[in-house]
Design a binder for these strands. Structure first.
Lengths: 191, 191, 191, 191
DNA sequence: TATGAATGAGTTTTCATTCAT
DNA sequence: TATGAATGAAAACTCATTCAT
């Protein structure tokens, strides 16, 4: 009665890792076959095209992070201030190891795909929106902050940008630095 | 007596545009030939490999932005406060038109290339460092700010991240928002 | 219930012929595709590179000649003297038709590839060694000849050299001549 | 009043070396330009095509060896027996150093070009004929040998074949061996 | 004479996708 | 479901040759 992990899901998981490392376009179907140890027929049985797999990978990223970041943290039952700190801490932790060299799964695909593939773009767009709203809601609760959703977007920009710099430097220092500053920043109060 | 435009430079310019739009890996040599209206032989006469052209493009980005952003603005003879505002305004202006959909030339390549090509990575790294130092120097002059170089890196992260979000949204709103907040932010004073 | 001819083996056979005529380097993959009437994908499905195919062709040459020349003749159960004559006759026969214009499969690749490709070189080297030993063993049995293996190498040199001259002359006369002389030569006796 | 070495001749000399090492087809015009340190214009000023240069190189080989091997040795005023020994010794000496790895200039091109380029083939054919005749004339003088020209061709075959084997083995042993045997061989007497 | 920029057909190789089994 | 053989367009790159200077 155990739920055996479905082959299709396995493929998506493996592909998600490969694509985060190499990018979508540079990842060949063969790369995925090799990493997942499956044949061509199986792959194209589950996914009509490489693009379909790519979208499934984005969906997987979204599932994962919507759960861990949005549901479990920003929409948890903790105090708003604690939720904010937890989000920043979780981000820090996630990128402490070699993960930082691979960059943000969303940021990577955002940069690579936004201009020429609207299917990727709109899904990523929606995820950033969801994140922004969840963070904005949290900020709203903390104190009577001015434009909490704008400030949420600003914080997310800073986080994404510092992961980008961290990837270039191959060091998590830029991310650590930005999050330290964000934690100490004076929030823009209503007048 | 006219200064004829140099062919090699022309190719780099054209390639710089194409690569900013499509990314390095997705840009084929044929794409560049078509955009520049030249033949294969001419291309490979000037560049031994596509990679060599890619590096020349990064160098061109660096030349351009080192001049416009660093030399002409951050290291100009204006007041420090004015230089800071000028940098933010110039960034805003540059991305007002359709440019925002293409993203930041450096940020794009940083994300795409950092993990598997150290030649690209180290050049981009150096550029961000130069920018950070020039901005940090400027901040130092404004008032007795705490850790001006850390704050400079934080500002740059925010700018890069909001260009990334703007690319996803195909709108410059995230960039406008971040810059507005940066302009109004209270700088972290020495204690 | 028929034994279908194996595609990969077919390609090797076709390529072996083309390469014997044109040489390895002058034979393009397209030449082979055209001769075998297959597409690019099929070729590169079986062989990762042209070089891999080249090596497979050498291996095929070796298989063929190890069987016909060494196993079936020099190591057969005939009298040594008969085996020697059979080897010389088989060589003569093989080159009677237009084959002589194409030269020796081994000699051709030996000359073309030895200096810059050790994979080809060492395989050909081993084949000539095997031939030399098998011929030397045969000579040993005939009579108490001095240095049978040296004389075997000498005979093989003569055969290869006269195939070379025959190729230049586009006539088998040099080979016929050399073999006639070899047949009548007084073997160098022990003192 | 010194005869300055003509550029064209220099190019042929340089090309002769490169082609002996790499073969005609694998030698690119650029290889020659690099080795000779000249530009494209100069090359194609002197030679309408690469093929024309190739033929000039064969002519140069023929000039050189007709002089050193045929005129200076086989047609010298020495005793016939001494001329024969001198020819064999000169061959041995020429290939003692690393020269053996490059093979025989004539043998190399004979194998590479005979089947598909009659211009190369017929020149090489003529050279081997001249060598055969000069050697046959020498043999005729030694004693009343049967078929001196056939035996001359046989000797040349042996020499070419053992240079071929030496190239494969990357060792001059096969050539030393063959020449030792040739020196000790009983010449086929008239009956 | 000589330079080297320019050409474009040709080379080897990769790749997403299809298809027979 | 799944295999992997087969496809062919497209990729990066090479090369003999031409041409403006």
């Amino acid at each position: 009665m155990t739920t055996e992990s479905l082959p299709k899901d396995d493929i998506i998981d493996v592909a998600a890792e490969v694509i985060r490392s190499k990018g979508y376009q540079s990842t060949s179907v063969n790369d995925i076959l090799a990493a997942a140890n499956i044949g061509k027929g199986k792959f194209f049985h589950y996914f009509k095209t490489k693009h379909e797999l790519g979208i499934a990978v984005v969906d997987r990223y979204i599932e994962t992070w919507s759960l861990t970041l949005i549901e479990n943290i920003l929409r948890s039952s903790q105090e708003a201030e604690d939720r904010l700190q937890a989000m920043l801490n979780q981000t820090l932790e996630f990128y402490q190891d070699t993960n930082v060299k691979k960059g943000c799964p969303f940021g990577n695909l955002a940069v690579e795909m936004s201009e020429h593939d609207s299917a990727f773009r709109s899904k990523i767009d929606t995820f950033f929106d969801d994140w922004t709203v969840a963070l904005g809601d949290t900020l709203s609760e903390i104190e009577s902050i001015k434009s909490p959703y704008s400030y949420a977007q600003y914080m997310i920009s800073t986080i994404e940008g510092s992961i980008l710099l961290a990837k270039v430097k191959q060091s998590n220092e830029p991310l650590n630095n930005s999050i330290t500053i964000l934690k100490n920043a004076t929030l823009p109060h209503k007048e």
